[in-house]
């Protein structure tokens, strides 16, 4: 095994359709990301981008193949260990933020910390994403841009090797989207986190030096 942060080999995922036929959603031959890499993975809607991120995060298991994160084949881990591994090694930023509504910004970040046993400073991270004045506000009291910045802080609180972002600007306007995107890239650069972002937005793709189409992974 090399020093790749993410390594996919012969990964297959299919779903059984209502008529009983199997639909191949993911077919990846070989794909690797090194520490500090930042790439945009591009595909049309419904092409399986989110499914691929869930496979990398260990939320879903492939029908076949190897998914290595930081040198660990997560497909071989029992579910509980896979959950713990995900919390400590993978940060996940969602299009719809996925913040818990009953918790403040700070509490949402600390939730991420709790499951990953992280020792990062949640307050410092929120300051870094320019939310020092919003620590104790609940998501409903935050703008959508602020909510996504909370989600970024939460994804980074355990200093993960790999950050997965599933169309993180999809729910934001252009200005907010650009700001969030730059922020995410900046903090990943500073922390040498590997960033894999899926998108179908050409505007987002332009921010990345390396853009990979999902079909190219076959």
């Amino acid at each position: 095994m090399n020093d790749a942060v993410l390594s996919l080999r012969e990964v297959r995922k299919s779903y059984r359709e209502a008529d009983g036929n199997r639909l191949d959603v993911i077919q990846v031959g070989q794909f690797e990301l090194a520490a500090g890499d930042q790439i945009a993975l591009v595909g049309s809607s419904g092409s399986g981008k989110s499914t691929l991120l869930n496979l990398i995060a260990g939320i879903l298991l492939p029908d076949a193949g190897v998914v290595c994160v930081n040198g660990t084949d997560i497909t071989q881990l029992p579910e509980a260990k896979r959950d713990r591994f995900r919390a400590g090694n993978i940060g996940y930023v969602f299009q719809s933020f996925n913040l818990l509504q009953g918790f403040t910004a700070l509490e949402n970040v600390r939730l991420g910390q709790m499951f990953g046993n992280g020792t990062g400073d949640a307050v410092e991270l929120l300051k870094k994403v320019d939310l020092a004045h919003r620590l104790h506000h609940k998501p409903r009291a935050l703008s959508v841009g602020e909510q996504q910045r909370v989600a970024i802080a939460r994804a980074l609180v355990n200093a993960p090797a790999l950050v997965l972002a599933d169309e993180p600007t999809g729910s934001l306007d252009a200005a907010n989207g650009t700001a969030v995107l730059e922020l995410l890239r900046q903090v990943c650069t500073e922390g040498r986190h590997t960033l894999l972002m899926v998108t179908h937005d050409p505007a987002v793709m332009r921010h990345f030096e390396r853009v990979v189409r999902l079909e190219e992974l076959r």
């Binding site: 995060a57 939320i59 579910e79 509980a80 959950d83 713990r84 995900r86 919390a87 400590g88 996940y92 996925n98 913040l99 818990l100 939730l111 991420g112 499951f115 990953g116 939460r154």
Partner: peptide, 11 residues
Amino acid sequence: ILRALGARRGT
């Protein structure tokens, strides 16, 4: 969301 953040089923 909790599961995605790393909470186990048992948790």
